[in-house]
Design a protein around this nucleic acid. Sequence first.
DNA 1: TCTGGGGTCCTAGGACCC
DNA 2: TCTGGGGTCCTAGGACCC
Length: 358
Amino acid sequence: MADWVLHVDMDQFIAAVEVLRRPELAGRPVIVGGRGDPTERAVVSTASYEARAFGIGSGMPLKIAARKAPEDAVFLPVDHDAYEAASHEVMSTLRALPGVVLEVIGWDECFLGVSVDDPEAVARSAQAAVLEATGLHCSVGIGDNKVRAKIATEFGKPRGVFRLTAENWFEVMGDKPTRDLWGVGPKISRRLAEHGIDTVRRLAEADREMLVGEFGPRMGVWYGELGEGRGPAVVDDTPWVARSHSRETTFQQNLTTEAEVEEALRELAGHAFDDCAAESRPVMRVHLKVRYAPFETKTFGRKLPAPTTDRDEVIAAAVELGKTLDRDREVRLLGVRAEMTMPDDGDPVERTPVRGRI
DNA sequence: TCTGGGGTCCTAGGACCC
DNA sequence: TCTGGGGTCCTAGGACCC
């Protein structure tokens, strides 16, 4: 028996949930995003495979998607509650599989830790169980750590299974661009390319001191390991503890007056505070995010004198921070983030440099 | 062509202390 | 007059992920 990490990823999750409750949409290009109005400022959350065939994808502005979409395309509003419910069903189905440890990493994906001889068999039974319970399809990546399992899933899509380990890492990934690695985005891949590192193999062979010099002691080391496909292998089922909550809004019409800005800040700060209060967690810091028209983002924050559970104090802090905004510029987006104190005033989990919930 | 909303973690630099 | 080295805390911003 050996230890394996399985990464389960739902296929076109949001679009699939929508089609499930409106079977008449099956086979049509379905695009979910914003309030479902493609003339508004919003982006695509998920496009069905039929829509992707027209070049429509996640993160794309709805206006662009509308231009690419064929006549029979359907635009739908985001329905968080429906996806939350479907997600719960998927996760509890997987958690009930014998001998698995489950770590949720998003609405539509999770890691499973198993100790077996035949991980493919586990993957197939996971797919069958989820399909039976929810009517939804998923893909499964099998790896000897989380990094390889996560990347493997892409090769399994849709509805498939793929195994990626130390044995076939370079064969499968060696000639791929560094951008294909989990945790390497457009900026990092460009900086790597400036050092002549354009493939995963090159990254694996890169001089570690150069990486540390360029990216710092933690990220430099991490990127080097990523090139080799190394990474954490422990699947941890301890419940997630949020570190902060935020609320932000993009205005359909930019805000132009101070009164409008203050009103929006009160509203957002109140909601962000309420999200923290719902977990009985004091707020420690308040951050503001502002996007000035047309598209320049700034963030800044302030530590409160002491952790507080006073709603008005958090709102006042946000309003106070708002006074430092540039008065001569139109505000396109505002956000308030409330950073919470940790429940035991300590760090609940060992961190790794991969952003998010690895 | 026009760019959401919810998160996490890392780094650099300055202030301040001993 | 010119100056150390180490540590911590804080702020601002960068980058990435789903």
